[in-house]
Design a protein around this nucleic acid. Structure first.
Lengths: 264, 264
DNA sequence: ATGAGACCCTGACGCAGGGTCAGGGTCAAG
DNA sequence: CTTGACCCTGACCCTGCGTCAGGGTCTCAT
């Protein structure tokens, strides 16, 4: 007769694991000798090896219990089920690898490659880190919530930023971020922003909204609000700027648009 | 400002997970409002998405904490490490799949394919289920302990079983299993077994041991003992048979051999 | 006969990554 | 004023064991 330690050695498992299987009802508790030690027959080795075979194949112990007493057809069905799960897990891990592979630097964390290229270009154009970080955070959120739209949006952004008008506007913001809310230059900035918006509206047709790239995609209002909030949090002068824009008939930021006429 | 529920919705996680990250120190605890509710800024969404990106890539939360504040070079090293782990996991799962695929029926559980073929042949030859099951259990143990030897051993077994002498012996055992310990036919069986062994010894040279296929491989004594024990447990008449063989100068079963001369 | 060391026993806590109550308080709308 | 949807903390649950803690027992050497 075998002691638990010998059984463990024969089956290649730990003593603790055997007691665990007893507790889970996978392996029947054997007789005890006079001093209370468990004493196993050789059959237990076989059962234990079968348990390990299933467990090492990724079968959860709860299912192992059923499989040990299952008939061939239940067994086959269960094996198929397990295989499906394994395939799904492998697919998942592969996706994880893909994602991890994209995290070459902390900067790119949670950003798709297209966006990384965009930020590299922004840096090239000499924008302040502060502005880029804020843009990056916005795009992390966008990529998380509407990942499918990101490639098209990024392509649009990259085209815009090569245009003189947009680039002038971006450089304008890059200065704004350091201003205090009471700085008189904010007024100037607001005027320029509105001028830009009016021009864009005139060029691309009067739709009542600017031709921001975001327009073409349905962003849920919560997302827009979140991005606006993030903007306001990032710059101390942001509320004042929004107020000035509001006075000039424009509301919002992420999806900035003409205020509806009174009476509607 | 966001409530915890809104934050959870934006980042695509559960409220519970956020509190868990607070407890683990991954996400800083935000200010509370007058009623004790947590109030988050938009920045929290970004942090949370970064946490999830890493966590979903299989990074343990303890490591996520470090990575969130890591520099690019530590980050790159960690990413490499994680990717190694992911590859290992994928390889492991693939092995699980392979093993699972071999478990087509409960019968074959924990047996290599070569052995399955052997048992199919035994069944063809008309052996009792009882005998086959016992043989199978032995091979489950052997396959678990010395898997590398199994293919060669099985090939030997299959050759043997096609020989007239061995097959006669096997059919003899197949009858023995149903006998009671006091059955007089056991004596006859013992005589036949010994005759067979003497003949084998004469044919293959007197080495002091039979030319059992197992001889060619070093089986640890514990394994041999285990297999003997399994044999004894399986048939009520086994002890008596071993006794009769002992009287005729042969000892053991799995690696049956001539008893050493007295005085050694 | 008496240590010493290697076993064995039960019971309990620990890990990751949260899920799921329980038993409250709070907020907004009708 | 109620209702339902939120929020709070604290605590226990899951898997598959590892790892004490605090005992008892076995065997061998001294």
């Amino acid at each position: 007769m075998l002691t638990i330690g010998q059984l463990a050695a024969h089956a290649g498992v730990t003593v603790r694991a055997i007691r665990h299987y007893h507790a889970k009802g996978l392996l029947p508790e054997p007789e005890r000798d006079s001093s209370g030690y468990r004493r196993y027959g050789a059959q237990a080795v076989v059962t234990l090896i079968r348990i390990r075979t299933l467990a090492e194949a990724g079968v959860p112990l709860s299912q192992v219990r059923e499989l040990l007493v299952a008939g061939p057809e239940q067994f086959a069905a269960a094996v198929e089920d397990i295989d499906r799960r394994l395939r799904a897990q492998i697919r998942e891990l592969r996706e994880h690898r893909d994602r991890i592979a994209r995290l070459a630097t902390g900067d790119n964390l949670a950003l798709p490659p297209a966006a990384v290229a965009y930020f590299d270009r922004l840096r090239e154009l000499g924008f302040r880190d502060r502005v880029i970080e804020m843009e990056r955070d916005s795009w992390i959120v966008i990529a998380a919530q509407v990942p499918d739209h990101v490639p098209a949006l990024m392509a649009l952004k990259r085209r815009q930023i090569e245009g003189a008008n947009w680039r002038r506007l971006y450089h304008l913001f890059a200065e704004v971020v350091e201003l205090r809310p009471d700085d008189h230059r904010l007024i100037e900035v607001a005027d320029q922003v509105v001028a830009f918006l009016e021009e864009e509206a005139a060029t691309f047709g009067e739709t009542g909204r600017s031709e921001s790239p975001l327009d073409a995609y349905e962003f849920r209002p919560e997302l827009v609000e979140l991005l606006d909030t993030a903007f306001v949090e990032s710059f101390s002068c942001a509320p004042r700027l929004l107020e000035l824009l509001d006075q000039r008939g424009w509301t919002g930021w992420t999806m900035i648009q003409r205020k509806p006429a009174l009476g509607i």
